[in-house]
Design a protein around this nucleic acid. Structure first.
Lengths: 353, 353
DNA sequence: CTGAAAGCGCTTACAG
DNA sequence: CTGAAAGCGCTTACAG
């Protein structure tokens, strides 16, 4: 009688390991054994290091293919004290601006082999702090953050973690801060100037959520109107509720009721502007004959509005793409051309202004 | 002269480890040493096991707090062959339906201590297969998938990975399949019946993207109209391009031009319906007097439309919430009440129908 | 260019 | 209820 369990003796780690904790998947050791090299050499090939003799590298690659070997991300992260995760923190998903940004980041990172973690901050600093604290414990390879609105403590936390970090949607001129975006102030100024150029003088501003970028837009708007001598604070509606078509409709109605001489409205989000435009239709207020309307971001659907909505196109896909590429360079320790990348914006004039 | 480095001798791992690969963060061993217990006991307390004497557990918790200890997710995953990541695969982010679903899942999972990985499949089976293959190598603790449209090979892959999995947005009656959603067919049937009840007979259907759920809606719509004896295949527009207001406007125009006797349109997405409604305004087609319009999903903004858009409200937040809770139970090995949860839907009648 | 040894920080059986 | 030992699968110095 021969021992049944001896069938696999000597075949090493490719045999089932009985009560051991092994998972059954091929490991680096299996690959190395099959290729006839040491695990460390196999590791070098898998990691893409070029210091391995081509012939050996080829044997390793063949073994990887034959075994269907996939590196274990946890073991990798534990041994190297670095994961291959990229963390992206955005305020919310209900704004197409951020989902497009996210998709662009995801596209680049996926191709580069980095899965992304998405954290939703809900515009709440404490929520962002909690997310950061939690995600940083995963030792992410990189970080993409929206804007600069965070506490000194958080900044130090990020700094101390030594994680490459790129900020998006706003610009900073601090030399050690990496960011990709455009000037919210200049963008709002461009809208205000456009409306002045159209001969408008009684121009209202409608902002919601009141996040830092909305406030910068308000500031840009105000500066241009003040310079033109036609700024009227009563024409500014700043509402801290989340942006929505309902809010835009409400604001538009309030404005035309209380200020019948109104001749333009700058909504700092397209969804607000959609609501405003529909309310104008409902009230019979001719756009743009009596009131010009302009939105912000130029999200899909503006061309279908009645009249087609003028807006300021923001380059969120380009921002996501450029930020991801910059982060990749930082993660690899490669130099970046400039720490701050200004991608600009474009005024899209349609029928509503 | 005393040896300067001896200052920390004997303090164990709390001292800087010089050239070692340690990260400087507190480890379980540090916690155990401070609490005067073994690492395994500390591990049990941190993991929430109840088999530790309260007094010891308290000492461990105090040490955790004092050291600011955070478990290392990689070490945990490596040792236990399970990560604490939950993977969610959805078709895209540009549909509010999915972002709301995602936010609900995220809320539940965050509270339970599980970060989520989001994969965007772009409605492409090969993309989903690649995402699944990649994410499964992280040994996720759980999986949330949209619908059932995947190959036998993928199903086996998931099965073999032994990862708890919940499907969302569609229902199955297979006893071993866990799912949370509602009947797409019944929902579309409810819309069709509503239009028949309104006395409509020349009812068009507009579908985009043509994903499995859209096709089920088309099927439900068709079945009711056939039963009523007024189904006309020429009134069905099935367009494989992604859903958008522009597409809805185009479809509406085409329908009224080629079928002047049209008296209702069922758009199987609200954004299509918005485009259709605006096109009706543009063309001067009275809604609902000449043509009734109904959308699907009831995303935000319908009440602001002109006229306000009737739609079928789908319970995506509830689906996300329930799916996450079900997955949590599966991950913990707890029993679930039923493998399939039907959350229903609600017809929201507004002015457009 | 290649490898033997040690270690990353945790958990899993196993034993008491 | 508690712990000493081993191990998860990889990478990091170090040495040659």
């Amino acid at each position: 009688m021969h021992d049944a369990s001896s069938d696999n003796d000597g075949t090493g780690s490719r045999a089932p390991r009985g009560r051991s904790r092994a998972t059954g998947r091929a490991t680096l050791a299996d690959v190395a054994a099959l290729a006839g090299v040491s695990p460390i050499t196999a590791s070098r090939v898998v990691a893409g290091k070029t210091t391995v003799r081509p012939e050996l590298a080829e044997r390793v690659r063949a073994a990887v293919a034959q075994l269907g070997y996939r590196p274990d991300p946890s073991a990798r992260a534990l041994a190297s004290a670095k994961s291959r995760h990229v963390v992206v923190l955005i305020p919310l998903l209900s704004n197409t601006l951020f989902t497009e940004l996210l998709e662009a980041v995801q596209d680049v990172m996926w191709d580069a082999g980095y899965p992304i973690f998405v954290g939703i901050t809900q515009y709440k600093p404490e929520r962002e702090a909690a997310l950061l604290d939690s995600y940083l414990s995963h030792r992410p390879a990189g970080l993409i953050l929206t804007g600069f609105d965070r506490s000194e403590a958080q900044r130090r936390l990020i700094e101390a973690s030594d994680t490459p970090c790129v900020h998006v949607m706003e610009l900073s001129d601090a030399p050690d801060v990496h960011c990709v975006g455009f000037s919210q102030i200049k963008a709002a100024q461009a809208v205000a100037r456009h409306l002045l150029d159209r001969g408008r003088r009684r121009i209202a501003f409608v902002g919601a959520q009141l996040d830092p970028r909305t406030l910068e837009r308000a500031e840009g708007f105000r500066s241009v109107l003040q310079a033109a001598g036609c700024h009227d604070p009563r024409l500014e509606i700043l509402d801290s509720r989340p942006s929505s078509a309902a809010l835009g409709a409400e604001a538009f109605r309030r404005l035309v009721e209380t200020h019948p001489d109104l001749d333009a409205v700058f909504f700092c989000n397209d969804d607000l502007a959609h609501g405003g435009l529909l309310e104008a239709l409902r009230l019979g207020v001719p756009v743009p004959d009596r009131v010009s309307v302009v939105g912000f971001n130029d999200l899909p659907g503006n061309a279908q509005m009645l009249p087609a909505l003028s807006s300021l196109r923001t380059p969120r896909r380009e921002v996501g793409d450029a930020a991801a590429r910059m982060l990749l360079r930082l993660m690899r320790g490669e130099p970046v051309d400039a720490p701050a990348v200004d991608l600009g914006f474009e005024l899209k004039i349609r029928a509503s202004s």
